[in-house]
Write a protein that binds this DNA or RNA. Structure first.
Lengths: 281, 281
DNA sequence: GCAAAAGTGTTCACGATACACCCATGG
DNA sequence: CCATGGGTGTATCGTGAACACTTTTGC
Protein backbone atom coordinates (compact mmCIF):
# COMPACT_ATOMS: atom_id res chain seq x y z
CA UNK A 1 0.00 0.00 0.00
CA UNK A 2 2.77 2.44 -0.77
CA UNK A 3 2.02 5.81 -2.21
CA UNK A 4 4.03 7.01 -5.13
CA UNK A 5 5.57 10.25 -4.08
CA UNK A 6 5.20 13.15 -1.70
CA UNK A 7 2.72 15.18 -3.69
CA UNK A 8 0.54 12.18 -4.31
CA UNK A 9 0.56 11.50 -0.64
CA UNK A 10 -0.40 15.06 0.14
CA UNK A 11 -3.46 15.16 -2.01
CA UNK A 12 -4.40 11.67 -0.93
CA UNK A 13 -7.06 11.32 1.73
CA UNK A 14 -5.83 10.87 5.28
CA UNK A 15 -6.33 7.83 7.46
CA UNK A 16 -9.53 7.76 9.51
CA UNK A 17 -10.26 6.26 12.91
CA UNK A 18 -12.58 6.47 15.90
CA UNK A 19 -11.71 7.43 19.46
CA UNK A 20 -13.78 7.58 22.59
CA UNK A 21 -13.64 9.69 25.73
CA UNK A 22 -15.17 7.57 28.46
CA UNK A 23 -16.29 9.19 31.68
CA UNK A 24 -17.44 7.79 34.99
CA UNK A 25 -18.04 9.19 38.41
CA UNK A 26 -15.11 8.49 40.70
CA UNK A 27 -15.41 7.04 44.17
CA UNK A 28 -16.68 9.42 46.81
CA UNK A 29 -13.99 11.80 47.94
CA UNK A 30 -11.27 9.62 46.49
CA UNK A 31 -8.52 11.83 45.29
CA UNK A 32 -5.88 9.23 44.51
CA UNK A 33 -2.74 11.21 44.98
CA UNK A 34 -3.21 14.05 47.38
CA UNK A 35 -3.29 16.65 44.67
CA UNK A 36 -4.50 20.13 45.26
CA UNK A 37 -7.92 19.37 43.85
CA UNK A 38 -10.80 20.10 46.16
CA UNK A 39 -11.37 16.83 47.90
CA UNK A 40 -14.91 17.81 48.81
CA UNK A 41 -16.64 16.53 45.71
CA UNK A 42 -16.31 13.40 43.69
CA UNK A 43 -14.37 13.62 40.51
CA UNK A 44 -14.76 12.32 37.00
CA UNK A 45 -12.48 9.48 35.99
CA UNK A 46 -11.65 8.08 32.60
CA UNK A 47 -9.84 5.02 31.25
CA UNK A 48 -6.83 5.53 29.02
CA UNK A 49 -4.75 3.05 27.10
CA UNK A 50 -1.01 2.87 26.78
CA UNK A 51 0.27 3.20 23.27
CA UNK A 52 2.38 0.31 22.06
CA UNK A 53 3.68 1.85 18.89
CA UNK A 54 5.07 5.04 17.46
CA UNK A 55 4.35 7.87 17.52
CA UNK A 56 3.90 8.54 21.22
CA UNK A 57 4.80 4.99 22.13
CA UNK A 58 4.41 4.53 25.86
CA UNK A 59 2.17 7.57 26.29
CA UNK A 60 -1.40 7.31 27.43
CA UNK A 61 -4.11 7.84 24.86
CA UNK A 62 -7.82 7.62 24.28
CA UNK A 63 -9.21 4.21 23.43
CA UNK A 64 -9.80 3.95 19.72
CA UNK A 65 -10.29 1.71 16.77
CA UNK A 66 -10.95 1.52 13.10
CA UNK A 67 -13.87 2.44 10.94
CA UNK A 68 -15.65 -0.21 8.98
CA UNK A 69 -17.70 0.45 5.92
CA UNK A 70 -20.45 -1.83 7.15
CA UNK A 71 -20.82 -0.18 10.55
CA UNK A 72 -22.29 3.12 11.57
CA UNK A 73 -19.86 5.52 13.21
CA UNK A 74 -21.57 4.95 16.48
CA UNK A 75 -21.24 1.21 16.18
CA UNK A 76 -17.58 1.61 15.40
CA UNK A 77 -17.18 3.80 18.46
CA UNK A 78 -19.07 1.30 20.54
CA UNK A 79 -16.86 -1.53 19.36
CA UNK A 80 -13.71 0.42 19.99
CA UNK A 81 -14.91 1.18 23.48
CA UNK A 82 -15.97 -2.35 24.22
CA UNK A 83 -12.94 -4.09 22.84
CA UNK A 84 -10.44 -1.95 24.68
CA UNK A 85 -12.21 -1.48 27.99
CA UNK A 86 -15.02 -4.03 28.16
CA UNK A 87 -17.35 -1.30 29.39
CA UNK A 88 -21.01 -0.79 28.53
CA UNK A 89 -21.87 2.83 28.07
CA UNK A 90 -25.16 4.30 29.20
CA UNK A 91 -24.63 7.19 26.85
CA UNK A 92 -22.73 7.61 23.64
CA UNK A 93 -22.60 10.69 21.51
CA UNK A 94 -20.44 12.02 18.75
CA UNK A 95 -18.16 14.76 20.02
CA UNK A 96 -16.25 16.16 17.10
CA UNK A 97 -14.05 15.15 14.22
CA UNK A 98 -10.43 16.16 14.47
CA UNK A 99 -8.27 16.31 11.42
CA UNK A 100 -5.54 18.85 11.71
CA UNK A 101 -2.64 17.68 9.53
CA UNK A 102 -0.08 18.14 12.28
CA UNK A 103 -1.95 16.65 15.17
CA UNK A 104 -0.10 13.40 14.70
CA UNK A 105 3.24 15.08 15.32
CA UNK A 106 5.32 13.08 12.93
CA UNK A 107 2.94 10.23 12.36
CA UNK A 108 0.80 9.96 9.26
CA UNK A 109 -2.01 12.47 9.02
CA UNK A 110 -4.99 11.07 10.83
CA UNK A 111 -8.61 12.05 11.05
CA UNK A 112 -10.27 10.98 14.29
CA UNK A 113 -14.00 10.85 14.68
CA UNK A 114 -14.33 11.19 18.43
CA UNK A 115 -17.25 10.03 20.54
CA UNK A 116 -17.79 10.52 24.24
CA UNK A 117 -19.44 8.03 26.53
CA UNK A 118 -20.78 7.88 30.04
CA UNK A 119 -20.70 4.70 32.05
CA UNK A 120 -22.37 4.24 35.38
CA UNK A 121 -20.33 4.25 38.49
CA UNK A 122 -20.84 0.61 39.34
CA UNK A 123 -19.40 -0.48 36.00
CA UNK A 124 -16.09 0.96 36.95
CA UNK A 125 -16.57 0.97 40.66
CA UNK A 126 -13.30 -0.70 41.42
CA UNK A 127 -11.52 1.29 38.78
CA UNK A 128 -9.50 -1.75 38.10
CA UNK A 129 -6.49 -1.33 35.93
CA UNK A 130 -5.61 -3.83 33.28
CA UNK A 131 -2.28 -4.24 31.63
CA UNK A 132 -2.56 -1.47 29.15
CA UNK A 133 -5.63 0.33 30.40
CA UNK A 134 -5.77 2.47 33.50
CA UNK A 135 -8.26 4.87 35.07
CA UNK A 136 -7.25 8.45 35.74
CA UNK A 137 -9.05 11.21 37.59
CA UNK A 138 -9.93 14.33 35.66
CA UNK A 139 -7.62 16.48 37.72
CA UNK A 140 -4.63 14.20 37.58
CA UNK A 141 -4.16 13.18 33.98
CA UNK A 142 -0.83 11.98 32.67
CA UNK A 143 0.93 13.32 29.62
CA UNK A 144 -1.22 12.39 26.68
CA UNK A 145 -0.53 11.40 23.10
CA UNK A 146 -1.50 13.56 20.12
CA UNK A 147 -4.03 16.25 20.90
CA UNK A 148 -5.91 13.95 23.22
CA UNK A 149 -5.62 16.29 26.15
CA UNK A 150 -7.46 19.00 24.28
CA UNK A 151 -10.05 16.50 23.15
CA UNK A 152 -10.72 15.45 26.70
CA UNK A 153 -11.07 19.07 27.75
CA UNK A 154 -13.58 19.56 25.01
CA UNK A 155 -15.55 16.50 26.07
CA UNK A 156 -15.67 17.82 29.62
CA UNK A 157 -16.86 21.18 28.35
CA UNK A 158 -19.59 19.46 26.40
CA UNK A 159 -20.63 17.46 29.42
CA UNK A 160 -20.71 20.58 31.57
CA UNK A 161 -22.85 22.49 29.19
CA UNK A 162 -25.09 19.59 28.37
CA UNK A 163 -25.89 18.81 31.94
CA UNK A 164 -28.03 21.92 32.01
CA UNK A 165 -30.58 20.83 29.50
CA UNK A 166 -30.45 17.10 29.21
CA UNK A 167 -30.40 14.04 31.37
CA UNK A 168 -26.74 13.19 30.95
CA UNK A 169 -26.20 13.43 34.69
CA UNK A 170 -28.40 10.41 35.30
CA UNK A 171 -26.24 8.38 32.96
CA UNK A 172 -23.43 8.46 35.45
CA UNK A 173 -25.67 6.75 37.96
CA UNK A 174 -27.69 3.58 37.78
CA UNK A 175 -31.27 3.49 36.53
CA UNK A 176 -32.53 4.72 39.90
CA UNK A 177 -30.95 7.13 42.35
CA UNK A 178 -31.58 9.45 45.25
CA UNK A 179 -31.64 13.19 44.89
CA UNK A 180 -28.46 13.41 46.86
CA UNK A 181 -26.67 11.12 44.48
CA UNK A 182 -27.82 13.21 41.58
CA UNK A 183 -26.74 16.27 43.47
CA UNK A 184 -23.29 14.80 43.90
CA UNK A 185 -23.03 14.20 40.18
CA UNK A 186 -23.93 17.78 39.46
CA UNK A 187 -21.37 19.03 41.90
CA UNK A 188 -18.70 16.74 40.52
CA UNK A 189 -19.33 17.98 37.04
CA UNK A 190 -19.73 21.62 37.94
CA UNK A 191 -16.79 21.46 40.30
CA UNK A 192 -18.57 23.64 42.82
CA UNK A 193 -21.20 23.47 45.50
CA UNK A 194 -24.86 23.69 44.59
CA UNK A 195 -27.60 24.55 47.07
CA UNK A 196 -29.25 21.24 47.82
CA UNK A 197 -32.67 22.63 48.68
CA UNK A 198 -33.00 24.55 45.45
CA UNK A 199 -31.50 21.72 43.48
CA UNK A 200 -34.08 19.34 44.80
CA UNK A 201 -36.94 21.64 43.93
CA UNK A 202 -35.66 22.35 40.47
CA UNK A 203 -35.21 18.69 39.66
CA UNK A 204 -38.63 17.76 40.92
CA UNK A 205 -40.21 20.70 39.14
CA UNK A 206 -38.74 19.54 35.84
CA UNK A 207 -41.24 16.73 35.90
CA UNK A 208 -38.72 14.25 34.54
CA UNK A 209 -38.17 12.44 37.81
CA UNK A 210 -40.52 9.75 38.95
CA UNK A 211 -40.64 8.60 42.53
CA UNK A 212 -40.21 4.84 42.61
CA UNK A 213 -41.71 4.60 46.09
CA UNK A 214 -38.53 2.91 47.16
CA UNK A 215 -36.28 4.30 49.89
CA UNK A 216 -32.52 4.04 50.00
CA UNK A 217 -30.05 4.79 52.75
CA UNK A 218 -26.76 6.21 51.59
CA UNK A 219 -25.15 7.26 54.85
CA UNK A 220 -26.33 6.00 58.20
CA UNK A 221 -29.30 8.32 58.74
CA UNK A 222 -32.71 8.79 57.33
CA UNK A 223 -33.28 6.97 54.02
CA UNK A 224 -33.99 9.05 50.93
CA UNK A 225 -36.59 8.65 48.25
CA UNK A 226 -35.42 6.87 45.12
CA UNK A 227 -36.21 8.31 41.71
CA UNK A 228 -36.08 7.20 38.15
CA UNK A 229 -35.56 9.41 35.13
CA UNK A 230 -38.62 9.50 32.94
CA UNK A 231 -38.65 12.11 30.22
CA UNK A 232 -41.94 13.92 29.94
CA UNK A 233 -44.30 13.55 27.04
CA UNK A 234 -42.39 13.06 23.85
CA UNK A 235 -44.05 15.69 21.78
CA UNK A 236 -42.44 14.81 18.52
CA UNK A 237 -43.28 14.26 14.94
CA UNK A 238 -42.38 10.81 13.76
CA UNK A 239 -39.76 12.04 11.34
CA UNK A 240 -37.09 9.51 11.99
CA UNK A 241 -33.75 9.70 10.33
CA UNK A 242 -31.15 7.06 10.87
CA UNK A 243 -27.90 8.31 12.25
CA UNK A 244 -29.09 11.84 12.45
CA UNK A 245 -28.20 13.70 15.60
CA UNK A 246 -31.03 14.88 17.73
CA UNK A 247 -32.73 11.56 17.34
CA UNK A 248 -32.14 9.70 20.53
CA UNK A 249 -32.64 6.06 20.85
CA UNK A 250 -32.51 3.11 23.11
CA UNK A 251 -29.32 1.31 23.74
CA UNK A 252 -28.00 -1.99 24.91
CA UNK A 253 -31.40 -3.14 25.97
CA UNK A 254 -33.13 -0.78 28.31
CA UNK A 255 -30.75 2.10 28.56
CA UNK A 256 -32.36 4.99 26.84
CA UNK A 257 -29.94 7.50 25.48
CA UNK A 258 -30.60 11.17 25.77
CA UNK A 259 -30.94 13.49 22.90
CA UNK A 260 -30.63 17.14 23.01
CA UNK A 261 -31.17 20.12 21.02
CA UNK A 262 -28.06 21.43 19.42
CA UNK A 263 -27.69 24.59 21.36
CA UNK A 264 -24.56 25.72 21.55
CA UNK A 265 -24.10 23.41 19.72
CA UNK A 266 -25.70 23.05 21.42
CA UNK A 267 -25.00 22.67 20.15
CA UNK A 268 -24.00 19.99 18.88
CA UNK A 269 -25.71 16.99 19.56
CA UNK A 270 -26.92 13.60 18.91
CA UNK A 271 -27.40 10.31 20.59
CA UNK A 272 -27.26 6.61 20.12
CA UNK A 273 -28.56 5.19 16.91
CA UNK A 274 -28.31 1.41 16.70
CA UNK A 275 -31.59 0.30 18.14
CA UNK A 276 -35.17 1.40 18.20
CA UNK A 277 -35.09 5.14 17.77
CA UNK A 278 -37.62 7.21 19.66
CA UNK A 279 -37.50 10.94 19.57
CA UNK A 280 -37.43 13.37 22.41
CA UNK A 281 -37.42 17.08 22.79
CA UNK B 1 -8.42 0.20 -7.00
CA UNK B 2 -10.55 -2.91 -6.71
CA UNK B 3 -11.07 -4.65 -3.46
CA UNK B 4 -10.71 -8.37 -3.30
CA UNK B 5 -14.05 -9.66 -2.11
CA UNK B 6 -17.11 -8.68 -0.18
CA UNK B 7 -15.86 -9.37 3.31
CA UNK B 8 -12.68 -7.47 2.66
CA UNK B 9 -14.71 -4.58 1.44
CA UNK B 10 -16.88 -4.67 4.52
CA UNK B 11 -14.12 -4.45 7.03
CA UNK B 12 -12.31 -1.91 4.89
CA UNK B 13 -12.65 1.70 5.87
CA UNK B 14 -15.29 3.70 4.02
CA UNK B 15 -14.68 6.63 1.70
CA UNK B 16 -14.50 10.03 3.35
CA UNK B 17 -15.50 13.46 2.06
CA UNK B 18 -16.52 16.95 3.15
CA UNK B 19 -19.82 18.69 2.55
CA UNK B 20 -21.04 22.16 3.41
CA UNK B 21 -24.40 23.62 4.24
CA UNK B 22 -24.23 27.26 3.15
CA UNK B 23 -26.80 29.70 4.42
CA UNK B 24 -27.60 33.28 3.53
CA UNK B 25 -30.43 35.63 4.28
CA UNK B 26 -32.85 35.81 1.39
CA UNK B 27 -34.16 38.99 -0.14
CA UNK B 28 -36.73 40.82 1.92
CA UNK B 29 -40.11 39.21 1.62
CA UNK B 30 -39.11 37.26 -1.46
CA UNK B 31 -40.91 34.01 -1.47
CA UNK B 32 -40.05 32.76 -4.94
CA UNK B 33 -42.99 30.57 -5.66
CA UNK B 34 -46.06 31.61 -3.78
CA UNK B 35 -45.81 28.76 -1.32
CA UNK B 36 -47.72 28.72 1.89
CA UNK B 37 -44.78 29.97 3.90
CA UNK B 38 -45.41 33.09 5.91
CA UNK B 39 -44.31 35.84 3.58
CA UNK B 40 -43.88 38.27 6.44
CA UNK B 41 -40.25 37.52 7.27
CA UNK B 42 -37.22 36.97 5.16
CA UNK B 43 -36.13 33.43 4.65
CA UNK B 44 -32.86 31.57 4.65
CA UNK B 45 -31.55 30.47 1.30
CA UNK B 46 -28.88 27.99 0.40
CA UNK B 47 -27.00 26.97 -2.75
CA UNK B 48 -27.20 23.38 -3.92
CA UNK B 49 -25.43 21.60 -6.73
CA UNK B 50 -26.82 19.20 -9.24
CA UNK B 51 -25.31 15.76 -9.14
CA UNK B 52 -23.75 14.62 -12.39
CA UNK B 53 -23.20 11.00 -11.49
CA UNK B 54 -24.80 8.06 -9.78
CA UNK B 55 -26.18 7.56 -7.29
CA UNK B 56 -28.83 10.28 -7.27
CA UNK B 57 -27.71 11.63 -10.61
CA UNK B 58 -29.72 14.72 -11.43
CA UNK B 59 -30.76 15.33 -7.85
CA UNK B 60 -29.71 18.38 -5.89
CA UNK B 61 -27.11 17.95 -3.21
CA UNK B 62 -24.88 19.81 -0.80
CA UNK B 63 -21.66 21.19 -2.21
CA UNK B 64 -18.80 18.95 -1.28
CA UNK B 65 -15.29 17.85 -1.99
CA UNK B 66 -12.47 15.63 -0.97
CA UNK B 67 -10.26 15.50 2.05
CA UNK B 68 -6.56 16.03 1.69
CA UNK B 69 -4.02 14.80 4.15
CA UNK B 70 -2.18 18.10 4.05
CA UNK B 71 -5.23 20.24 4.81
CA UNK B 72 -7.21 20.75 7.95
CA UNK B 73 -10.82 19.66 7.77
CA UNK B 74 -11.85 23.26 7.84
CA UNK B 75 -9.57 24.11 4.98
CA UNK B 76 -10.98 21.23 3.00
CA UNK B 77 -14.49 22.47 3.73
CA UNK B 78 -13.48 25.96 2.73
CA UNK B 79 -12.04 24.76 -0.53
CA UNK B 80 -15.09 22.67 -1.31
CA UNK B 81 -17.26 25.67 -0.65
CA UNK B 82 -15.16 28.05 -2.67
CA UNK B 83 -14.59 25.83 -5.66
CA UNK B 84 -18.23 24.94 -6.08
CA UNK B 85 -19.89 28.24 -5.28
CA UNK B 86 -17.19 30.91 -5.30
CA UNK B 87 -18.55 32.27 -2.03
CA UNK B 88 -16.61 33.66 0.92
CA UNK B 89 -18.09 32.59 4.21
CA UNK B 90 -18.19 34.86 7.22
CA UNK B 91 -18.60 31.85 9.42
CA UNK B 92 -17.62 28.23 9.11
CA UNK B 93 -18.09 25.55 11.70
CA UNK B 94 -18.09 21.80 11.78
CA UNK B 95 -21.59 20.44 12.02
CA UNK B 96 -21.39 16.70 12.37
CA UNK B 97 -19.92 13.63 10.76
CA UNK B 98 -22.35 11.31 9.08
CA UNK B 99 -21.44 7.76 8.36
CA UNK B 100 -24.40 5.48 8.37
CA UNK B 101 -23.61 2.56 6.05
CA UNK B 102 -26.85 2.87 4.14
CA UNK B 103 -27.00 6.59 3.73
CA UNK B 104 -25.61 6.26 0.21
CA UNK B 105 -28.56 4.14 -0.86
CA UNK B 106 -26.74 1.85 -3.21
CA UNK B 107 -23.57 3.84 -3.63
CA UNK B 108 -20.39 2.96 -1.81
CA UNK B 109 -20.44 3.59 1.94
CA UNK B 110 -19.44 7.17 2.51
CA UNK B 111 -18.49 9.16 5.56
CA UNK B 112 -19.23 12.87 5.23
CA UNK B 113 -17.69 15.42 7.49
CA UNK B 114 -20.18 18.23 7.22
CA UNK B 115 -19.55 21.89 7.88
CA UNK B 116 -22.00 24.74 7.87
CA UNK B 117 -21.27 28.24 6.69
CA UNK B 118 -22.88 31.63 6.77
CA UNK B 119 -22.36 34.15 4.01
CA UNK B 120 -23.51 37.71 4.14
CA UNK B 121 -26.51 38.74 2.19
CA UNK B 122 -24.67 40.92 -0.29
CA UNK B 123 -22.46 38.02 -1.37
CA UNK B 124 -25.46 36.24 -2.68
CA UNK B 125 -27.70 39.21 -3.12
CA UNK B 126 -28.68 38.40 -6.64
CA UNK B 127 -28.93 34.74 -5.83
CA UNK B 128 -27.59 34.06 -9.24
CA UNK B 129 -27.80 30.55 -10.49
CA UNK B 130 -24.96 28.95 -12.37
CA UNK B 131 -25.21 25.90 -14.54
CA UNK B 132 -25.09 23.34 -11.86
CA UNK B 133 -25.57 25.43 -8.76
CA UNK B 134 -28.81 27.05 -7.72
CA UNK B 135 -30.14 28.84 -4.66
CA UNK B 136 -33.18 27.51 -2.86
CA UNK B 137 -35.22 28.98 -0.04
CA UNK B 138 -35.39 27.03 3.17
CA UNK B 139 -39.10 26.40 2.82
CA UNK B 140 -39.02 25.31 -0.78
CA UNK B 141 -36.26 22.77 -1.11
CA UNK B 142 -36.22 20.24 -3.93
CA UNK B 143 -35.81 16.53 -3.52
CA UNK B 144 -32.33 15.99 -2.17
CA UNK B 145 -29.71 13.30 -2.62
CA UNK B 146 -28.61 10.98 0.16
CA UNK B 147 -29.56 12.14 3.64
CA UNK B 148 -28.85 15.73 2.76
CA UNK B 149 -32.30 16.89 3.66
CA UNK B 150 -31.85 15.71 7.21
CA UNK B 151 -28.41 17.27 7.33
CA UNK B 152 -29.82 20.62 6.30
CA UNK B 153 -32.50 20.34 8.94
CA UNK B 154 -29.85 19.69 11.52
CA UNK B 155 -27.81 22.66 10.37
CA UNK B 156 -30.88 24.86 10.71
CA UNK B 157 -31.49 23.49 14.18
CA UNK B 158 -27.94 24.30 15.12
CA UNK B 159 -28.24 27.80 13.76
CA UNK B 160 -31.47 28.33 15.64
CA UNK B 161 -30.06 27.23 18.92
CA UNK B 162 -26.76 28.95 18.44
CA UNK B 163 -28.28 32.28 17.70
CA UNK B 164 -29.20 32.53 21.35
CA UNK B 165 -25.73 32.63 22.74
CA UNK B 166 -23.37 33.62 20.00
CA UNK B 167 -23.00 36.22 17.31
CA UNK B 168 -23.89 34.00 14.37
CA UNK B 169 -26.76 36.32 13.46
CA UNK B 170 -24.37 39.12 12.60
CA UNK B 171 -22.59 36.83 10.14
CA UNK B 172 -25.58 36.95 7.89
CA UNK B 173 -25.20 40.70 7.65
CA UNK B 174 -22.27 42.89 6.72
CA UNK B 175 -19.77 44.15 9.27
CA UNK B 176 -22.15 46.92 10.34
CA UNK B 177 -25.93 46.89 10.60
CA UNK B 178 -28.93 48.54 12.15
CA UNK B 179 -30.88 46.99 14.96
CA UNK B 180 -33.78 46.47 12.64
CA UNK B 181 -31.65 44.49 10.23
CA UNK B 182 -30.44 42.34 13.06
CA UNK B 183 -34.00 41.97 14.23
CA UNK B 184 -34.99 40.76 10.78
CA UNK B 185 -32.28 38.13 10.88
CA UNK B 186 -33.52 36.88 14.21
CA UNK B 187 -37.07 36.69 12.95
CA UNK B 188 -36.01 34.92 9.78
CA UNK B 189 -34.15 32.33 11.76
CA UNK B 190 -36.74 31.94 14.47
CA UNK B 191 -39.54 31.95 11.94
CA UNK B 192 -41.70 34.05 14.22
CA UNK B 193 -42.16 37.62 15.34
CA UNK B 194 -40.02 39.04 18.09
CA UNK B 195 -40.91 42.14 20.08
CA UNK B 196 -38.70 44.83 18.65
CA UNK B 197 -38.53 46.96 21.79
CA UNK B 198 -37.37 44.13 24.00
CA UNK B 199 -35.06 42.84 21.31
CA UNK B 200 -33.36 46.19 21.07
CA UNK B 201 -32.86 46.43 24.80
CA UNK B 202 -31.56 42.91 25.10
CA UNK B 203 -29.04 43.38 22.31
CA UNK B 204 -27.77 46.64 23.67
CA UNK B 205 -27.60 45.25 27.17
CA UNK B 206 -25.38 42.43 25.97
CA UNK B 207 -22.61 44.95 25.60
CA UNK B 208 -21.38 43.36 22.39
CA UNK B 209 -22.75 46.01 20.08
CA UNK B 210 -20.86 49.21 19.48
CA UNK B 211 -22.52 52.28 18.05
CA UNK B 212 -20.55 53.40 15.02
CA UNK B 213 -22.03 56.90 15.17
CA UNK B 214 -23.21 56.39 11.63
CA UNK B 215 -26.87 56.51 10.64
CA UNK B 216 -28.50 54.43 7.96
CA UNK B 217 -31.91 54.66 6.35
CA UNK B 218 -33.49 51.36 5.44
CA UNK B 219 -37.02 52.39 4.53
CA UNK B 220 -37.95 55.97 3.74
CA UNK B 221 -38.32 57.25 7.27
CA UNK B 222 -36.11 58.08 10.18
CA UNK B 223 -32.57 56.73 9.84
CA UNK B 224 -31.39 54.22 12.42
CA UNK B 225 -28.17 53.99 14.35
CA UNK B 226 -25.59 51.65 12.86
CA UNK B 227 -23.81 49.15 15.06
CA UNK B 228 -20.83 46.91 14.83
CA UNK B 229 -20.37 43.63 16.68
CA UNK B 230 -17.54 43.84 19.16
CA UNK B 231 -17.27 40.95 21.57
CA UNK B 232 -16.62 42.05 25.10
CA UNK B 233 -13.37 41.47 26.90
CA UNK B 234 -11.88 38.18 25.86
CA UNK B 235 -11.31 36.77 29.28
CA UNK B 236 -9.41 33.74 28.25
CA UNK B 237 -6.31 31.85 29.07
CA UNK B 238 -3.91 31.58 26.19
CA UNK B 239 -4.32 27.84 25.90
CA UNK B 240 -4.52 27.60 22.18
CA UNK B 241 -5.08 24.37 20.48
CA UNK B 242 -5.08 24.12 16.74
CA UNK B 243 -8.22 22.75 15.28
CA UNK B 244 -9.90 22.42 18.63
CA UNK B 245 -13.48 23.55 18.73
CA UNK B 246 -14.30 26.40 21.00
CA UNK B 247 -11.29 28.23 19.77
CA UNK B 248 -12.55 30.79 17.37
CA UNK B 249 -10.31 32.55 14.98
CA UNK B 250 -10.08 35.13 12.30
CA UNK B 251 -10.89 34.27 8.78
CA UNK B 252 -10.29 35.47 5.28
CA UNK B 253 -8.75 38.67 6.45
CA UNK B 254 -10.83 40.57 8.90
CA UNK B 255 -13.79 38.35 9.35
CA UNK B 256 -13.65 37.09 12.84
CA UNK B 257 -15.40 33.83 13.37
CA UNK B 258 -17.45 33.22 16.42
CA UNK B 259 -16.89 30.47 18.86
CA UNK B 260 -19.30 29.15 21.34
CA UNK B 261 -19.51 26.98 24.23
CA UNK B 262 -20.73 23.54 23.42
CA UNK B 263 -24.13 23.68 25.03
CA UNK B 264 -26.48 22.04 23.43
CA UNK B 265 -24.43 20.90 21.85
CA UNK B 266 -23.96 22.94 22.57
CA UNK B 267 -23.15 21.50 21.15
CA UNK B 268 -21.29 20.94 19.37
CA UNK B 269 -19.21 23.76 18.63
CA UNK B 270 -16.22 25.26 17.15
CA UNK B 271 -15.19 27.84 14.68
CA UNK B 272 -12.69 28.69 12.04
CA UNK B 273 -9.15 27.61 12.56
CA UNK B 274 -6.80 28.60 9.76
CA UNK B 275 -5.61 32.00 10.85
CA UNK B 276 -4.75 33.75 14.05
CA UNK B 277 -6.77 32.03 16.72
CA UNK B 278 -8.15 34.16 19.52
CA UNK B 279 -10.42 32.74 22.10
CA UNK B 280 -13.75 34.01 23.31
CA UNK B 281 -16.22 33.05 25.93
C1' DG C 1 -49.28 67.54 10.17
C1' DC C 2 -49.46 62.78 9.29
C1' DA C 3 -47.54 58.26 8.58
C1' DA C 4 -43.87 55.30 9.55
C1' DA C 5 -40.19 53.89 11.79
C1' DA C 6 -36.76 54.79 15.81
C1' DG C 7 -36.37 54.55 20.37
C1' DT C 8 -37.97 54.71 25.73
C1' DG C 9 -40.74 53.56 30.05
C1' DT C 10 -43.56 50.82 32.99
C1' DT C 11 -45.65 46.77 34.60
C1' DC C 12 -46.05 41.99 35.60
C1' DA C 13 -45.00 37.05 36.07
C1' DC C 14 -41.81 33.77 36.84
C1' DG C 15 -37.56 31.39 38.02
C1' DA C 16 -33.25 31.37 40.52
C1' DT C 17 -30.91 32.27 44.86
C1' DA C 18 -30.22 32.53 49.81
C1' DC C 19 -31.18 30.80 53.93
C1' DA C 20 -34.22 29.58 57.93
C1' DC C 21 -36.64 25.98 59.34
C1' DC C 22 -39.06 21.31 60.48
C1' DC C 23 -39.05 16.11 60.14
C1' DA C 24 -37.43 11.26 60.24
C1' DT C 25 -34.16 8.03 61.60
C1' DG C 26 -30.27 5.45 63.98
C1' DG C 27 -27.40 5.24 67.73
C1' DC D 1 -32.40 12.87 73.09
C1' DC D 2 -29.26 14.36 69.84
C1' DA D 3 -26.71 14.35 65.65
C1' DT D 4 -27.24 13.80 60.80
C1' DG D 5 -29.11 14.06 56.73
C1' DG D 6 -33.99 14.37 54.33
C1' DG D 7 -37.18 17.55 53.06
C1' DT D 8 -40.15 22.24 53.09
C1' DG D 9 -41.21 27.42 53.45
C1' DT D 10 -40.41 31.99 52.24
C1' DA D 11 -38.42 36.53 51.05
C1' DT D 12 -35.72 38.78 47.54
C1' DC D 13 -33.77 39.73 43.21
C1' DG D 14 -33.07 39.80 38.24
C1' DT D 15 -34.73 38.73 33.65
C1' DG D 16 -37.87 38.40 30.01
C1' DA D 17 -42.48 39.31 27.94
C1' DA D 18 -46.23 42.56 26.97
C1' DC D 19 -47.47 46.77 25.51
C1' DA D 20 -48.23 51.85 25.98
C1' DC D 21 -45.84 55.63 24.89
C1' DT D 22 -42.60 59.54 22.92
C1' DT D 23 -39.40 61.19 19.31
C1' DT D 24 -37.55 61.86 14.79
C1' DT D 25 -37.73 61.89 10.10
C1' DG D 26 -39.74 62.27 5.00
C1' DC D 27 -43.37 63.57 2.24
Amino acid sequence: MGFGNVSERRSAPPQVGVSVVILALGPRGADDTGTASNAAHSQLWMPLVKRVRQPFMGSWALPGGHLRADRSLEQSAFEALESTTALHPRYLEQLYTFGDPNRSHGGLPMVSIVYWALVEQSEAVDFEDGDNVRWFPEHDLPQLAFDHRAIIDYALERLRSKIEYSDVATRLLGPTFTLRQLHDVYEAIAGQSIDLANFRRKMLASGDLEDTGEKRREGRQRPAAVYRYVPKEQVNDTVQRAGIPGSPSSYAGDHAVASLDPRHNAAHDDALAPLTPSAQR
